[in-house]
Nucleic acid binder design. Structure first.
Lengths: 107, 107
DNA sequence: GTTTATTATCGTAATATTGCAATATAACAT
DNA sequence: ATGTTATATTGCAATATTACGATAATAAAC
């Protein structure tokens, strides 16, 4: 026991949960907000800003990146992380679709 | 270590994360979708529908309820769980505010 | 090539979450 | 009162997540 039983749920439910997990940690929310604020930004800035260790930030960035929410371009030794607006927008739309569909048939 | 360092993040970031956690499990998404579909519904229906044990469903319902997303009215020995549309709407708006604000100042 | 700076990965400890059996509680039915 | 049904709580095992030190990888600067 202990593991989430993904397989018994619909793809729709799993998709929403998967997306929500990205936002389900304040550090990741903060990282997304910070990245969007900067012209360009490198990981070390984020470490200073957020106040977690570099490995921890790197790990959170990986989660965000796995959701395809980042566009990173290498600039010499550092990486310029950028929000993948298109995908971010898609997240917003998918969440809204979930909210609207769920609202529509309520008692 | 291991515990989330909530205190180093802004209230805004913690609030979004808190909300996202409710949707960060497919069973809870499925429960919300199922509840919204029904005229009224009791926990045991949900157990049959979702395919998890009664205690597990009860636990998930508690998480959803703690977020104020449920209105439960007792009907004899069973409970009629209903979606708290007002709060659900509020969730949608708060998420949208987060998405819009984050999008607005991107590179 | 060596140093320096930046990011990623590995290993691991601490904590959180998930899921269920067993049990408790509550309300009705007989 | 006893039995039945519906839901909640408890306790615990399994797994996941979070966080960080140590270390690796990469690339510029010297």
């Amino acid at each position: 026991m202990g593991a989430t039983k993904d397989h018994i749920h619909t793809k729709a439910a799993n998709d929403i949960a998967e997306m929500a997990k990205v936002f389900a940690h304040p550090a990741r929310v903060a990282i997304l907000q910070y990245i969007s604020k900067q012209e360009s930004c490198i990981c070390n800035d984020i470490v200073d800003e957020i106040g977690l260790s570099q490995p921890t930030i790197s790990q959170h960035l990986k989660v965000i990146n796995n959701a395809n929410l980042l566009k990173g371009t290498f600039e010499g030794k550092s990486v310029c992380y950028c929000l993948n607006i298109k995908r971010f927008q898609e997240f917003q739309e998918l969440f809204n679709a979930f909210f609207n569909k769920t609202k529509s048939n309520c008692c």
